[in-house]
Amino acid sequence: MKQKTIQKNVDLVGIGLHKGVPVRLKLEPAPENSGLVFTRSDLGVSFKLTPECVIDTTMATVVGKDNARISTIEHFLSAVYAYGIDNLHISVDNEEMPIMDGSSISFCMLLDEAGIVPQNEPKKVMKIKETIEVKEGDKFVRITPSDKSLFDFEIDFKHPAIAKQAYQFYFSTTAYKEEIAKARTFGFLHEVQYLRSKGLALGGSLANAIVLDETKILNPEGLRYKEEFVRHKILDAIGDMALLGVPLFGSYVSYAGSHKLNHLLTKQILGNPNAYEIVTLNEEDTQSLAIEKIFALDSCKD
C-alpha cells in the first residue's frame, strides 16, 4: 500500500472555539515522507507535527513552535487519520483550528472535496509490541499489541444525561464516518460561564457543542448517537494518536482518558523502542493487516 495525500488545494473559514474569531484553514498536497506540516500563515512559522510539538493539553491539544501556537487540532487530525492521509500541508491564519459543528464531519467533507490520492512511496504503520499504560488516579490510557486497530473507551460522569458510557470501535474509514465522525464535543453550562469570564470559549454555542445544565442537555435537537459523549472521546483519542505520525495497530483502551494522558502515552511509546515496530508495507504486510480494507479509498465517500 502506498502513502496518501490530497489531490487538490481546499480551504474553509470557521470560528475558533476559544477566541471566537474567524479562522481560515487551507489544505495542500505534500510530497512523500514529509508528514503533516502545520503553518501559521499570519506569522510565517511552519513545523512538522510530532508529540514534541505539543505545548498544552489543558482544554485541548495545542501544538506550536517559537511564538506560533495552534489550538484544538484533535478533531481535524482525527479526520486526517481516518482517511489514511500521510502527507499534508495545513495552514491557518490564527491560533485555533475552526471548531465547525464540534465534531469532525465537516473536516471529512473537506477531505472528500479535496480527494485522496496514492503516492509513490510505501505506507508505514506502527505495530505495538509491548503494553504501555499511563495512569492518573483511577484514570488511564493503555495500548496493547494487536493486529487490529481498536479504540475501547469508558467514561463515568456524575450527570444524569451522561452517567456511565462505554464503546468499542474497530477502526476503519467507513466505520469512522458512520460511528464516530458526527460525535460532538460537550461541556457544562457552569464551565462555559467560568471559561468566558477568563476570555475562553467565546466561540462556543449550541451550534458547535453539546451543552448541559445540571440535569439535562440544552440542545433542542438532542443527541446524534445514543453514546455520543463517549464516541466523541474516541474521536479525540484518534486525533491525539495521529501525532505518532503513522497509523497505529494496537488496542487502545481508556477509562476517563484525556488529552494529557493521550499525549503522555504517545511520548512513552516513542520513548521505548522495544514497545513498537515501524513496518513499511509490502504486499504481504498489507494483506496480513488488512490495511487496504481499513483505509479503502471508496470508503471516503458517502
Rank of each mutant, 00 (worst) to 15 (best):
L281P: 04
E133I: 08
H232V: 09
S41Y: 11
L150H: 02
V21K: 05
D93W: 09
G250T: 02
V21N: 04
R224K: 11
T5C: 00
P160N: 02
D213Q: 05
S104N: 14
D42T: 10
K301A: 14
I291C: 09
E32V: 14
D213S: 06
Y176D: 09
V54N: 01
S251D: 06
V253H: 13
I90H: 09
A30D: 03
T131D: 06
P22F: 05
G257E: 05
F76L: 15
K177N: 15
V23G: 00
A30F: 07
L88I: 10
C108F: 10
P118H: 08
G84V: 12
K177V: 13
K164G: 02
I291V: 15
E32G: 13
V63R: 06
V246H: 11
D147Y: 04
V10F: 13
A296I: 06
I180M: 04
E214S: 09
V141S: 10
R196W: 01
G102Y: 01
G204P: 00
S205G: 02
D11L: 11
K260A: 11
D152F: 02
E95M: 08
V230G: 03
A82D: 00
H190M: 01
D213L: 00
C108T: 15
I143F: 05
K148M: 08
K260G: 14
L265K: 02
K48T: 10
I55K: 11
K177T: 10
A242V: 12
L218G: 06
P29S: 08
K260M: 13
I291P: 03
L297G: 10
G222I: 07
F76W: 09
F140Y: 15
K198R: 10
L218A: 07
Q119I: 06
D86Y: 06
P29N: 08
K48G: 07
T58G: 07
D112Y: 12
V117G: 11
K301I: 15
G44L: 11
R69H: 12
F76K: 08
K198M: 12
R142L: 03
N219K: 05
T61S: 13
R40P: 02
A166R: 05
F171R: 04
H89P: 01
E32N: 15
K182W: 04
Q193C: 01
L289D: 13
A30T: 04
V63Y: 09
Y225S: 04
A114R: 12
E179M: 07
F186H: 02
V192R: 00
Y170P: 03
E227V: 00
A207V: 00
H89N: 12
I90A: 09
P22V: 07
G257M: 08
